[in-house]
Design a protein around this nucleic acid. Structure first.
Lengths: 180, 180
DNA sequence: GATCTCATGTAATCAGTTACATGATTTC
DNA sequence: GAAATCATGTAACTGATTACATGAGATC
Protein backbone atom coordinates (compact mmCIF):
# COMPACT_ATOMS: atom_id res chain seq x y z
CA UNK A 1 0.00 0.00 0.00
CA UNK A 2 2.55 2.59 0.98
CA UNK A 3 5.54 1.60 -1.13
CA UNK A 4 3.68 2.95 -4.14
CA UNK A 5 3.29 6.25 -2.36
CA UNK A 6 6.87 6.36 -1.13
CA UNK A 7 7.95 5.89 -4.76
CA UNK A 8 5.54 8.59 -5.91
CA UNK A 9 7.01 11.01 -3.36
CA UNK A 10 10.52 10.17 -4.43
CA UNK A 11 9.69 10.56 -8.13
CA UNK A 12 7.83 13.82 -7.44
CA UNK A 13 11.02 15.11 -5.87
CA UNK A 14 13.10 13.89 -8.83
CA UNK A 15 12.62 11.44 -11.71
CA UNK A 16 14.72 8.30 -11.45
CA UNK A 17 15.35 4.75 -12.68
CA UNK A 18 14.51 1.67 -10.63
CA UNK A 19 18.16 1.44 -9.75
CA UNK A 20 18.29 5.05 -8.57
CA UNK A 21 15.19 4.47 -6.46
CA UNK A 22 16.75 1.37 -4.96
CA UNK A 23 19.70 3.47 -3.84
CA UNK A 24 17.41 6.12 -2.37
CA UNK A 25 15.63 3.36 -0.46
CA UNK A 26 19.01 2.35 0.94
CA UNK A 27 19.65 5.88 2.22
CA UNK A 28 17.48 8.99 2.77
CA UNK A 29 13.88 7.84 2.38
CA UNK A 30 14.98 4.30 3.18
CA UNK A 31 15.51 5.26 6.82
CA UNK A 32 11.73 5.42 7.13
CA UNK A 33 10.68 2.89 4.51
CA UNK A 34 12.95 0.09 3.31
CA UNK A 35 12.48 -1.63 -0.04
CA UNK A 36 14.59 -4.02 -2.10
CA UNK A 37 15.29 -3.47 -5.79
CA UNK A 38 13.22 -6.54 -6.67
CA UNK A 39 10.22 -5.12 -4.94
CA UNK A 40 10.74 -1.69 -6.48
CA UNK A 41 10.91 -3.05 -10.05
CA UNK A 42 7.76 -5.05 -9.49
CA UNK A 43 5.80 -2.13 -8.05
CA UNK A 44 7.08 0.25 -10.76
CA UNK A 45 5.64 -2.10 -13.37
CA UNK A 46 2.25 -2.06 -11.66
CA UNK A 47 2.38 1.71 -11.24
CA UNK A 48 3.15 2.19 -14.91
CA UNK A 49 0.19 0.07 -15.97
CA UNK A 50 -1.95 2.10 -13.55
CA UNK A 51 -0.77 5.28 -15.30
CA UNK A 52 0.85 6.80 -12.21
CA UNK A 53 4.30 6.87 -13.81
CA UNK A 54 5.77 6.78 -17.30
CA UNK A 55 9.15 5.43 -18.33
CA UNK A 56 11.62 6.36 -21.01
CA UNK A 57 14.60 4.27 -22.07
CA UNK A 58 17.81 6.27 -21.81
CA UNK A 59 20.93 4.99 -23.56
CA UNK A 60 24.19 5.75 -21.79
CA UNK A 61 27.70 5.58 -23.20
CA UNK A 62 29.55 2.66 -21.69
CA UNK A 63 27.03 1.90 -18.99
CA UNK A 64 23.83 -0.17 -19.41
CA UNK A 65 20.65 1.48 -20.62
CA UNK A 66 18.29 2.71 -17.98
CA UNK A 67 14.54 3.20 -17.74
CA UNK A 68 13.88 6.60 -16.24
CA UNK A 69 10.51 6.88 -14.54
CA UNK A 70 8.58 10.18 -14.40
CA UNK A 71 5.49 10.84 -12.30
CA UNK A 72 2.34 11.58 -14.36
CA UNK A 73 -0.47 14.02 -13.52
CA UNK A 74 -2.53 10.96 -12.49
CA UNK A 75 0.32 10.02 -10.16
CA UNK A 76 0.31 13.49 -8.62
CA UNK A 77 -3.45 13.25 -8.14
CA UNK A 78 -3.07 9.92 -6.41
CA UNK A 79 -0.40 11.39 -4.15
CA UNK A 80 -2.66 14.31 -3.20
CA UNK A 81 -5.61 12.00 -2.52
CA UNK A 82 -3.39 9.77 -0.38
CA UNK A 83 -2.18 12.68 1.78
CA UNK A 84 -5.77 13.79 2.33
CA UNK A 85 -6.71 10.46 3.91
CA UNK A 86 -5.90 9.43 7.47
CA UNK A 87 -2.79 7.31 7.91
CA UNK A 88 -3.57 4.00 9.61
CA UNK A 89 -1.91 4.00 13.01
CA UNK A 90 0.90 1.48 13.02
CA UNK A 91 1.42 -0.45 16.23
CA UNK A 92 4.83 -1.24 17.61
CA UNK A 93 6.35 -4.50 16.47
CA UNK A 94 9.45 -5.18 18.46
CA UNK A 95 11.08 -8.58 18.50
CA UNK A 96 13.42 -7.15 21.08
CA UNK A 97 10.56 -6.35 23.47
CA UNK A 98 9.42 -9.96 23.16
CA UNK A 99 12.96 -11.03 23.99
CA UNK A 100 13.00 -8.88 27.11
CA UNK A 101 9.82 -10.58 28.24
CA UNK A 102 11.69 -13.86 27.74
CA UNK A 103 14.35 -12.84 30.29
CA UNK A 104 13.24 -15.33 32.97
CA UNK A 105 13.48 -18.20 30.46
CA UNK A 106 16.65 -17.17 28.67
CA UNK A 107 20.20 -15.97 28.68
CA UNK A 108 20.49 -12.60 30.48
CA UNK A 109 24.15 -12.07 29.58
CA UNK A 110 23.46 -12.52 25.86
CA UNK A 111 20.56 -10.10 26.12
CA UNK A 112 22.83 -7.49 27.74
CA UNK A 113 25.27 -7.90 24.84
CA UNK A 114 22.37 -7.48 22.49
CA UNK A 115 21.35 -4.23 24.18
CA UNK A 116 24.86 -2.85 23.70
CA UNK A 117 24.73 -3.67 19.99
CA UNK A 118 21.35 -2.01 19.69
CA UNK A 119 22.52 1.06 21.58
CA UNK A 120 25.38 1.48 19.11
CA UNK A 121 22.98 1.13 16.17
CA UNK A 122 20.72 3.81 17.66
CA UNK A 123 23.69 6.11 18.15
CA UNK A 124 24.86 5.62 14.58
CA UNK A 125 21.46 6.44 13.19
CA UNK A 126 21.14 9.42 15.50
CA UNK A 127 24.50 10.71 14.29
CA UNK A 128 23.38 10.23 10.70
CA UNK A 129 20.14 12.15 11.26
CA UNK A 130 21.88 14.94 13.16
CA UNK A 131 24.45 15.30 10.41
CA UNK A 132 21.79 15.30 7.70
CA UNK A 133 19.84 17.94 9.60
CA UNK A 134 22.93 20.14 9.97
CA UNK A 135 23.88 19.74 6.33
CA UNK A 136 20.52 20.13 4.61
CA UNK A 137 18.77 22.45 7.07
CA UNK A 138 21.47 24.63 8.64
CA UNK A 139 18.90 27.23 9.65
CA UNK A 140 15.84 25.36 10.96
CA UNK A 141 14.09 28.51 12.11
CA UNK A 142 13.97 29.76 8.55
CA UNK A 143 12.85 26.87 6.34
CA UNK A 144 11.28 27.17 2.91
CA UNK A 145 7.76 25.63 2.78
CA UNK A 146 9.01 22.72 0.68
CA UNK A 147 11.71 21.96 3.25
CA UNK A 148 9.44 21.58 6.28
CA UNK A 149 8.40 17.98 5.56
CA UNK A 150 11.95 16.70 5.24
CA UNK A 151 13.01 18.56 8.36
CA UNK A 152 10.13 17.17 10.41
CA UNK A 153 10.89 13.64 9.26
CA UNK A 154 14.47 14.04 10.44
CA UNK A 155 13.21 15.41 13.76
CA UNK A 156 11.06 12.30 14.13
CA UNK A 157 14.07 10.11 13.47
CA UNK A 158 16.13 12.01 16.01
CA UNK A 159 13.45 11.77 18.70
CA UNK A 160 12.95 8.05 18.05
CA UNK A 161 16.66 7.27 18.25
CA UNK A 162 17.08 9.32 21.42
CA UNK A 163 14.21 7.39 22.98
CA UNK A 164 15.82 4.14 21.85
CA UNK A 165 19.11 5.11 23.48
CA UNK A 166 17.37 6.11 26.70
CA UNK A 167 15.62 2.74 26.76
CA UNK A 168 18.89 0.86 26.24
CA UNK A 169 20.44 2.83 29.10
CA UNK A 170 17.61 1.95 31.45
CA UNK A 171 17.93 -1.71 30.50
CA UNK A 172 21.68 -1.68 31.04
CA UNK A 173 21.28 -0.02 34.41
CA UNK A 174 18.86 -2.74 35.50
CA UNK A 175 20.61 -5.75 34.03
CA UNK A 176 24.21 -4.72 34.09
CA UNK A 177 24.28 -2.77 37.33
CA UNK A 178 26.95 -0.44 35.93
CA UNK A 179 26.32 3.23 35.24
CA UNK A 180 27.48 4.43 31.85
CA UNK B 1 10.10 -15.95 12.71
CA UNK B 2 9.29 -14.15 15.91
CA UNK B 3 5.61 -14.98 16.34
CA UNK B 4 6.65 -18.50 17.30
CA UNK B 5 8.86 -17.07 20.01
CA UNK B 6 6.28 -14.61 21.24
CA UNK B 7 3.89 -17.56 21.62
CA UNK B 8 6.57 -19.59 23.41
CA UNK B 9 7.12 -16.73 25.87
CA UNK B 10 3.41 -16.42 26.48
CA UNK B 11 2.98 -20.17 26.99
CA UNK B 12 6.06 -20.30 29.24
CA UNK B 13 4.35 -17.68 31.41
CA UNK B 14 1.09 -19.66 31.36
CA UNK B 15 -0.42 -22.45 29.24
CA UNK B 16 -3.33 -21.37 27.08
CA UNK B 17 -5.63 -22.18 24.17
CA UNK B 18 -5.36 -20.51 20.78
CA UNK B 19 -8.29 -18.36 21.75
CA UNK B 20 -6.62 -17.30 25.02
CA UNK B 21 -3.45 -16.46 23.12
CA UNK B 22 -5.43 -14.40 20.63
CA UNK B 23 -6.78 -12.34 23.50
CA UNK B 24 -3.29 -11.90 24.95
CA UNK B 25 -2.16 -10.70 21.52
CA UNK B 26 -4.95 -8.13 21.64
CA UNK B 27 -3.71 -6.79 24.98
CA UNK B 28 -0.49 -7.14 27.00
CA UNK B 29 2.03 -8.81 24.71
CA UNK B 30 0.06 -7.57 21.71
CA UNK B 31 1.22 -4.02 22.37
CA UNK B 32 4.62 -5.11 21.10
CA UNK B 33 3.67 -7.89 18.69
CA UNK B 34 0.24 -8.10 17.08
CA UNK B 35 -1.18 -11.33 15.72
CA UNK B 36 -4.61 -12.42 14.52
CA UNK B 37 -6.30 -15.60 15.72
CA UNK B 38 -6.02 -17.11 12.23
CA UNK B 39 -2.28 -16.63 12.26
CA UNK B 40 -1.98 -17.96 15.81
CA UNK B 41 -3.88 -21.18 15.03
CA UNK B 42 -1.73 -21.75 11.96
CA UNK B 43 1.55 -21.22 13.81
CA UNK B 44 0.41 -23.33 16.79
CA UNK B 45 -0.14 -26.23 14.40
CA UNK B 46 3.37 -25.87 13.03
CA UNK B 47 4.84 -25.54 16.53
CA UNK B 48 3.07 -28.70 17.66
CA UNK B 49 4.46 -30.71 14.76
CA UNK B 50 7.90 -29.29 15.59
CA UNK B 51 7.48 -30.54 19.15
CA UNK B 52 7.73 -27.12 20.80
CA UNK B 53 4.24 -27.36 22.29
CA UNK B 54 1.74 -30.07 23.14
CA UNK B 55 -2.03 -29.75 23.24
CA UNK B 56 -4.71 -31.35 25.31
CA UNK B 57 -8.43 -31.20 24.59
CA UNK B 58 -10.32 -29.83 27.57
CA UNK B 59 -14.10 -30.27 27.75
CA UNK B 60 -15.98 -27.43 29.39
CA UNK B 61 -19.52 -27.46 30.67
CA UNK B 62 -21.68 -25.29 28.44
CA UNK B 63 -18.85 -23.69 26.53
CA UNK B 64 -17.08 -25.22 23.51
CA UNK B 65 -14.15 -27.57 24.03
CA UNK B 66 -10.76 -25.99 23.98
CA UNK B 67 -7.28 -27.17 23.05
CA UNK B 68 -4.90 -26.09 25.78
CA UNK B 69 -1.32 -25.75 24.62
CA UNK B 70 1.62 -26.40 26.96
CA UNK B 71 5.25 -25.60 26.21
CA UNK B 72 7.49 -28.70 26.01
CA UNK B 73 11.13 -29.02 27.16
CA UNK B 74 12.10 -28.74 23.47
CA UNK B 75 10.12 -25.50 23.34
CA UNK B 76 11.95 -24.16 26.38
CA UNK B 77 15.26 -25.08 24.77
CA UNK B 78 14.30 -23.26 21.62
CA UNK B 79 13.34 -20.20 23.67
CA UNK B 80 16.70 -20.23 25.47
CA UNK B 81 18.61 -20.62 22.19
CA UNK B 82 16.62 -17.77 20.67
CA UNK B 83 17.42 -15.39 23.56
CA UNK B 84 21.11 -16.24 23.25
CA UNK B 85 21.25 -15.04 19.64
CA UNK B 86 21.42 -11.39 18.57
CA UNK B 87 18.10 -9.80 17.64
CA UNK B 88 18.13 -8.46 14.08
CA UNK B 89 17.89 -4.69 14.27
CA UNK B 90 14.54 -3.59 12.95
CA UNK B 91 14.49 -0.38 10.95
CA UNK B 92 11.75 2.18 11.24
CA UNK B 93 8.83 1.76 8.88
CA UNK B 94 6.62 4.78 9.08
CA UNK B 95 3.98 5.48 6.49
CA UNK B 96 3.41 8.72 8.33
CA UNK B 97 7.01 9.85 7.78
CA UNK B 98 6.55 9.21 4.07
CA UNK B 99 3.41 11.32 4.21
CA UNK B 100 5.28 14.20 5.86
CA UNK B 101 7.78 14.07 3.03
CA UNK B 102 4.80 14.39 0.68
CA UNK B 103 3.79 17.71 2.27
CA UNK B 104 4.80 19.85 -0.76
CA UNK B 105 2.62 17.70 -3.03
CA UNK B 106 -0.35 17.18 -0.76
CA UNK B 107 -2.96 18.47 1.61
CA UNK B 108 -1.34 20.19 4.61
CA UNK B 109 -4.63 20.70 6.50
CA UNK B 110 -5.49 17.00 6.28
CA UNK B 111 -2.03 16.10 7.50
CA UNK B 112 -2.45 18.39 10.51
CA UNK B 113 -5.72 16.62 11.34
CA UNK B 114 -3.89 13.34 11.00
CA UNK B 115 -1.22 14.46 13.46
CA UNK B 116 -3.89 15.31 16.02
CA UNK B 117 -5.40 11.81 15.66
CA UNK B 118 -1.97 10.25 16.07
CA UNK B 119 -1.20 12.36 19.10
CA UNK B 120 -4.34 11.13 20.79
CA UNK B 121 -3.46 7.52 19.98
CA UNK B 122 -0.01 8.00 21.50
CA UNK B 123 -1.53 9.52 24.63
CA UNK B 124 -3.97 6.66 25.01
CA UNK B 125 -1.23 4.09 24.76
CA UNK B 126 0.97 6.06 27.13
CA UNK B 127 -1.87 6.15 29.67
CA UNK B 128 -2.34 2.41 29.26
CA UNK B 129 1.35 1.69 29.85
CA UNK B 130 1.56 4.05 32.81
CA UNK B 131 -1.47 2.44 34.37
CA UNK B 132 -0.14 -1.07 33.78
CA UNK B 133 3.18 -0.06 35.31
CA UNK B 134 1.48 1.37 38.39
CA UNK B 135 -0.76 -1.65 38.80
CA UNK B 136 1.67 -4.51 38.18
CA UNK B 137 4.89 -2.93 39.41
CA UNK B 138 3.94 -0.52 42.20
CA UNK B 139 7.48 -0.60 43.57
CA UNK B 140 9.87 -0.46 40.61
CA UNK B 141 12.96 -0.14 42.78
CA UNK B 142 12.29 -3.50 44.32
CA UNK B 143 11.38 -5.91 41.50
CA UNK B 144 11.64 -9.66 41.62
CA UNK B 145 14.04 -11.08 38.98
CA UNK B 146 11.14 -12.51 36.96
CA UNK B 147 9.44 -9.10 36.89
CA UNK B 148 12.31 -7.11 35.38
CA UNK B 149 11.62 -8.07 31.76
CA UNK B 150 7.97 -7.05 31.87
CA UNK B 151 8.85 -3.80 33.59
CA UNK B 152 11.53 -2.92 31.04
CA UNK B 153 9.15 -3.62 28.18
CA UNK B 154 6.64 -1.22 29.67
CA UNK B 155 9.40 1.38 30.10
CA UNK B 156 10.21 0.99 26.40
CA UNK B 157 6.59 1.53 25.51
CA UNK B 158 6.41 4.62 27.69
CA UNK B 159 9.57 6.13 26.20
CA UNK B 160 8.39 5.40 22.67
CA UNK B 161 4.98 6.99 23.22
CA UNK B 162 6.49 10.05 24.88
CA UNK B 163 8.80 10.46 21.89
CA UNK B 164 5.80 10.08 19.57
CA UNK B 165 3.91 12.79 21.42
CA UNK B 166 6.93 15.11 21.35
CA UNK B 167 7.19 14.58 17.59
CA UNK B 168 3.50 15.37 17.07
CA UNK B 169 3.90 18.54 19.11
CA UNK B 170 6.84 19.69 17.01
CA UNK B 171 4.88 19.00 13.84
CA UNK B 172 1.85 20.89 15.11
CA UNK B 173 4.00 23.83 16.12
CA UNK B 174 5.46 24.00 12.62
CA UNK B 175 2.32 23.36 10.60
CA UNK B 176 -0.37 24.72 12.81
CA UNK B 177 1.44 27.71 14.21
CA UNK B 178 -0.49 27.39 17.48
CA UNK B 179 1.11 26.41 20.77
CA UNK B 180 -0.61 23.67 22.68
C1' DG C 1 42.14 -12.28 -12.04
C1' DA C 2 38.70 -10.69 -8.60
C1' DT C 3 35.62 -7.62 -6.97
C1' DC C 4 32.67 -3.56 -7.25
C1' DT C 5 29.28 -0.61 -9.53
C1' DC C 6 25.70 -0.10 -12.90
C1' DA C 7 21.35 -2.00 -14.50
C1' DT C 8 17.09 -4.94 -14.76
C1' DG C 9 14.61 -8.46 -13.88
C1' DT C 10 12.13 -13.72 -12.65
C1' DA C 11 10.83 -17.46 -9.42
C1' DA C 12 9.95 -19.47 -5.12
C1' DT C 13 8.75 -18.95 -0.66
C1' DC C 14 7.16 -16.95 3.68
C1' DA C 15 4.51 -13.88 6.66
C1' DG C 16 0.44 -11.58 7.34
C1' DT C 17 -4.34 -9.84 6.17
C1' DT C 18 -9.03 -10.36 4.71
C1' DA C 19 -12.88 -12.96 3.83
C1' DC C 20 -15.51 -16.92 4.83
C1' DA C 21 -17.41 -20.69 7.83
C1' DT C 22 -19.69 -22.91 11.90
C1' DG C 23 -22.14 -23.34 16.18
C1' DA C 24 -23.40 -23.12 21.18
C1' DT C 25 -24.25 -20.09 25.23
C1' DT C 26 -24.88 -15.81 27.52
C1' DT C 27 -26.32 -11.10 27.92
C1' DC C 28 -29.16 -7.04 26.54
C1' DG D 1 -34.95 -11.44 18.84
C1' DA D 2 -30.16 -9.40 18.36
C1' DA D 3 -25.65 -9.06 19.65
C1' DA D 4 -21.66 -10.41 22.14
C1' DT D 5 -18.56 -14.07 23.90
C1' DC D 6 -16.39 -18.52 23.51
C1' DA D 7 -13.95 -21.52 20.37
C1' DT D 8 -11.54 -23.28 16.12
C1' DG D 9 -10.45 -23.26 11.88
C1' DT D 10 -9.91 -22.93 5.94
C1' DA D 11 -9.07 -20.32 1.63
C1' DA D 12 -7.57 -16.63 -1.13
C1' DC D 13 -4.73 -13.00 -1.63
C1' DT D 14 -1.11 -9.39 -0.90
C1' DG D 15 3.36 -7.73 0.57
C1' DA D 16 8.03 -8.76 1.34
C1' DT D 17 12.24 -11.64 1.47
C1' DT D 18 15.55 -14.80 -0.50
C1' DA D 19 17.54 -17.02 -4.14
C1' DC D 20 18.69 -17.05 -8.84
C1' DA D 21 20.03 -14.92 -13.36
C1' DT D 22 22.63 -12.01 -16.71
C1' DG D 23 26.13 -8.96 -18.52
C1' DA D 24 29.19 -4.87 -19.38
C1' DG D 25 32.66 -1.65 -17.64
C1' DA D 26 35.70 0.16 -13.87
C1' DT D 27 38.78 -0.44 -10.19
C1' DC D 28 42.17 -2.97 -7.29
Amino acid sequence: MALEHAILVSLAEKSASGYDLARRFDASIGHFWKASHQQIYKVLGRMESDGWVESELVAQGGRPNKKVYVITPAGRDELAVWTSKATPIEHLRSEFAVKLRALPFGDAAAIVDDVRVRRRAHEERLAYYAESAARFYPDPDDLRPDEIGGWLVLRGGILAEEAGIAWCDEILQRLDGAER
